[in-house]
Amino acid sequence: MTTTTLPNRTRVLILLVAVVLLGAVGTGAVLWASDRSAERDRPQAGGPVVTRGEVTLKDPAARQLVFRNMAWGPHRDEVVTVPAGHPDGPRTSSGVQCLRFYAAAGTGICLRADRGALQDTYRAVVLDDHLRELRSFPAAGIPTRSRVSPSGHLAAWTVFVSGDSYAGTDFSTRTSIVDVRDWNLRENLEEFDVVKDGKPYRAPDINVWGVTFADDNTFYATVATGGQTHLVRGDLAARTLTTLHQNVECPSLSPDGTRIAYKKRVPGASADAPWRLYVLDLATMTETATAEQRSIDDQAVWSDDRTLLYAMPGDFGADLWTVPADGSGAAGRLLEAAVAPAYLG
């Protein structure tokens, strides 16, 4: 390394040449990426037909499936509906963009990103039955889960708060619940009292995510602490979370309220794909593995008391798949290029 013995002019010249070369490489990388990104605004051949139309969340004429459309083209990322009986039919777009969406009884919850000058910000938006904004709440990070109670009175959402350079790359979650009747917001469920194995429990590393509602006061969710996940039953009035079962993530309560579909971390699976889709019977606490053999990273939805619907990675981000809840049968793809489904009616 004798570079510093070079004359000043030579050194500056070398630096300038390097700046130009490196700048060209960097610019090239950005332009290439920009070009590839632009492709997503054009519809792909053979993709689903999406047209702008009327979408209502309450009492549709026939049962519908509502979800975020992932297909390329002008309606990408918009909330669309298809008839539940013809899921691969033409999609009707509401024109409302959401990253995550859920709806029940005429109330919608839409987790949305707003482009800022320097950074995206996120909001949880409560929508009425015509997808009009009723109220919105700032969210601290990347949206991941959303649910509405069967009555349509409560909405819950979970976001990832990513650590930044000063706090490490660890993630934590923030889960909030709002009552849409009086807009009473429980901003952070971590502040609820945790009762673990019958005793009060506290820890700095508590994370809560994946709320699923039983009624307007009782809900289920995942609490993680000390490297272990727990299914908890939450009581909104008492502000408590009570652990019921271990190794449960992203619970989803069946319509009859007797079972929980969830992600279970299975031993021996790779770090990239550690989960399988399981069903837990709440009365007996028996676990049943579903026929879905792949790793799942979604909060499943019950199509009815026997069938589960969930997203799996696909060519355009995600596809929706179904599998029987009792462990029988096989998983099958319901529709392409879709995520965050909910049934209407």
């Binding site: 990388a29 950005v30 920009s34 990104s37 632009a38 997503r40 990322d77 990675p313 355009f316 981000g317």
Partner: peptide, 23 residues
């Protein structure tokens, strides 16, 4: 931003991030 993708590119889009790594 310049790479054009939305920041939350959960459509399996990695180009924007690749541009960041390259730069």
């Amino acid at each position: 931003r310049l790479a054009g993708g939305p920041m939350l590119a959960d459509g399996g889009q990695q180009q924007g991030y690749h541009a960041v790594f390259a730069v």
